[in-house]
Design a protein around this nucleic acid. Structure first.
Lengths: 234, 234
DNA sequence: CCCTCAAATTTGTATGATGACCTTATTACC
DNA sequence: GGTAATAAGGTCATCATACAAATTTGAGGG
């Protein structure tokens, strides 16, 4: 019924572990993976599972199997895009990891925004903040306004990669965020807490205090994670 | 250059054709694909090939196989990977922006590492740090060792997305890092400064002090940016 | 009508075999 | 001795079969 419970899937875990080893550089010496038979023995699974795992890594452009020769790790001849497997990303266990990345970005975004923001930027951020309250007052969940608020702050940094990265992460976090906000809407203490945290970020930016802004953003996202876990998301 | 000639690879073509049929909506009626056995017969291949093809579509989030039930097409649309145009990324003006993203990640990585590291992790990080000195003593630039050091710290966080993101960023920053390290090697004050900054990060992690680790990492990367600009990179 | 439970269906995994292709070592020839 | 042809072994690609695990289905009993 609920897609979460269904699939630990051996080939998935093997692919994950292999990818991790590759990224760490375990096979950097030879530039190629052990044979399928050896891997099967190491992982304690059949060659079938190993082959499916390798097939995925091939599909992702991480490795290139050559018939008769071996499975070679592809050295980035081409720039490899940052891609996160959807099935893996929506696993509850992945949520804290994705949130950690977002936390890292948002913290630096806040600090950078505090350094570079103009008076006009601050006014726009204030407006975005007010929009969240309006949405709440209107009975909407305010997910879009919340996203817009954070996006506005990212925009004032003038760093397009912050925005890109956050947009990318939001693809995976969106569902969780929506649930949290719905959850927050039903609890006054949560709702007020989020408001205060947002206000703290804006205040620090307004004061042009990068350190305070960073800490405020960190606090906000640590608490967001806590709220998520209390909501049973992760 | 012409690596394509060798392997059309049956599972690839099957996956392509299946994807096309799915996009056309051939299975929209039932919402699920025919059984693997039927597909094998239709395509005139073995079930192995069908399974590999389906495995890829699953990996791409197009379908979701459920044991005992069937292979269902996921109405969920395309997740867009994070791509950065290479020509844009290597422009000097982009370098500070990419560095800012890296700074964000590294700071959180250091904090997280300080929280979760075991004694053994610390020993490995120490070893990675020593490797940099060894490389320097041997007259090498130590780029690989420097990268390995940061990667090791990222590894102890247990967060695969940190590693992925850093690897992704390194694709673009690699060149700049190499130049900086060569530049550092020629200036004792730079070299010593980098050593001290690295040591500060490790010390904070050893002390299990997330805040200090974050600040040490931030300092390191702010200074790295300064050194880059003094070297005329950006 | 509903509940239980067993059979049928379907994907997941394991195993063995064969072919295609590559690498390496050996051999034969000059 | 050097070089090219050849043989041997290793490795991935595919196939075929069998069994396990999970789900769906349907029959039977209350």
């Amino acid at each position: 019924m609920f897609d979460k419970v269904s699939a630990p899937a051996m080939s998935d875990t093997v692919a994950q572990q292999l990818l991790k080893q590759i990224e760490i550089g375990s096979f950097a010496a030879t530039g190629k993976l052990p044979t399928e038979a050896v891997l099967a023995q190491q992982f304690g699974v059949s060659r079938t599972v190993i082959r499916e795992a390798i097939s995925r890594l091939k599909n992702e452009g991480v490795v290139e199997p050559r018939q008769g020769s071996g499975v070679f790790v592809k050295e980035h001849g081409a720039i490899r895009p940052l891609r996160i497997d959807y099935a893996e990303a929506i696993e509850p266990s992945s949520m804290p990891h994705l949130l950690a990345v977002r936390r890292a970005i948002e913290a630096e975004v806040a600090a950078e925004a505090a350094r570079r923001c103009t008076d006009r930027d601050i006014a726009e951020i204030d407006a975005a903040l007010a929009n969240i309250d309006e949405a709440a007052a209107a009975g909407r969940d305010g997910v879009a306004e919340d996203v817009a608020f954070h996006r506005k702050i990212a925009a004032v940094t003038g760093n397009p990669y912050f925005i890109k990265t956050l947009n990318f992460l939001n693809q995976y976090l969106e569902a969780g965020v929506a649930v949290t906000r719905r959850n927050e809407a039903t609890r006054d203490d949560f709702s007020r807490q989020v408001r205060d945290e947002h206000a703290a970020i804006v205040d620090a930016i307004r004061a042009r205090d990068p350190m305070a802004a960073r800490n405020a953003a960190l606090t906000h996202l640590y608490n967001a994670e806590r709220r998520l876990s209390q909501a049973g998301i992760c």
